[in-house]
Design a protein around this nucleic acid. Structure first.
Lengths: 235, 235
DNA sequence: AAGTGGTCTAGACCACTTC
DNA sequence: AAGTGGTCTAGACCACTTT
């Protein structure tokens, strides 16, 4: 029933900005003015301001005021799951292999270090729409091949061996030539090019610990990303 | 020289989390305990907590404590600029045309409404790497065709006619068949498939006001996205 | 009842910008 | 000097969870 005052103030200001009352490069009313208008304390107003700041709508300038930011249409956020919500997958191979040159380079493998590889095809409506493969440097014993399969998503495989929150993923989406072993599974001709989603799992020190890629056909549907005024608000 | 105390506290806790002292699903020390340890007030500690919360590292649970969150490797952030930092572009055509069926549908155009179209090729190292086209519903007079060209980035074209911050961009990256008029410019065969970056500019009410797409060849290099522990920290 | 986070106050002093 | 945001305090009362 009763909403906190700082939420109310933030909403009023946000509406003002989205309605164009406050234009980009304008200054909002000062903290003192707002505190007086709402008959509250400065700290409460500051809480409202920090919300709008986190949403990317305003930026405080020390000694001047709160400046309304111009919109940014170059920062996008995107959700990607290796197992699309609608659709199944099928394992093709789980094995310990010598990786190709490209994978060895990406994983910075020394000598002839082996990797566990997990290959799958993703299906949607009975159609094969993507080929998925994951590479993990092989160490004797741990992790066992069977072990890795218990995890739904790739980065989870590493959370037992690394501090979970110290890992991050770098993704690269590009058009690439499809390698031989993928062609047959996808029913495409050799040398055809497909959209590829490459993911490299890295530690805090940027050491690669895993690599995955998905070759996506036209049926895959594509990736969706969002940008703009309240991208950050879309919680 | 002297950093604020709340920054220090946030750093200590963050380091604790990234070092694994506090594991996902653990609770951090309570506000009162931290305030006592650092000989400060609860409000200062709360400021530290709100930082870590915004970074996606912790989540407060009313009546219980601050819970360390498991990492999320499905949320990505990405920067996309229609004019790649390294490389030039060349205008092919700026015109008022009847759009194709696909564009008319995306822009929800009524009847035989015309659009302004701006077509370019993007070059990198002397090579044509992408074909870029933008569509804007045409209205008599404003906006003039010449006018639109003054803007570096697409969404800026609309900021005079709409409240800037009320617009957002929806991006879709997919593999698509290349239309006839693009083939020649890119030197690819008809019916070949390329990676396409589609962008739809929408108002607050999800009314489309502009559409752009880039057909990217292998030379384009691809898109980079980030996910993980301090994606949000990477300011 | 005791402990936790959530909201809020009425001040203080500081650093920065403008006049 | 006056106005702005930045940091911080020492309380208060509330809502929620656990015992």
């Amino acid at each position: 029933m009763k909403r906190p005052l700082y939420i109310q103030i933030a909403e009023d200001l946000r509406n003002g900005i989205l309605a164009g009352e406050y234009q980009p490069k304008d200054l909002l009313p000062s903290e003192n003015v707002l505190a007086a208008n709402y008959r509250t304390s400065r700290m409460t107003v500051r809480k409202s301001m920090s919300i709008l700041e986190n949403e990317g709508l305003i930026k405080p300038l020390h000694g001047k005021g709160y400046y309304v930011l111009p919109p940014d249409h170059t920062m996008f956020s995107m959700v990607f799951s290796e197992n699309p919500p609608e659709g199944q997958f099928r394992y093709l191979e789980v094995n310990i292999v010598s990786p190709g040159e490209d994978v060895a380079r990406l994983l910075q493998l020394q000598g002839n270090r082996l990797t566990i590889v997990i290959r799958r095809v993703l299906e949607q409506g009975g159609q094969v729409v993507a080929y998925d493969e994951k590479y993990i440097p092989y160490e004797r014993g741990v992790p066992s091949v069977e072990f890795e399969l218990h995890y739904a998503e790739f980065p989870q495989m590493f959370e037992k061996r690394f501090v979970p929150l110290s890992l991050h993923t770098e993704m690269r989406i590009a058009l690439e030539k499809v390698p031989q072993h993928v062609c047959a599974a996808l029913g495409v001709e050799p040398d055809e090019k497909l959209m590829v989603i490459n993911r490299l799992i890295l530690t805090k020190d940027n050491k690669p610990v895993g690599f995955a890629r998905q070759y996506c056909t036209e049926g895959y549907g594509g990736l969706l990303a969002q940008s703009g005024y309240y991208t950050s608000k879309g919680l």
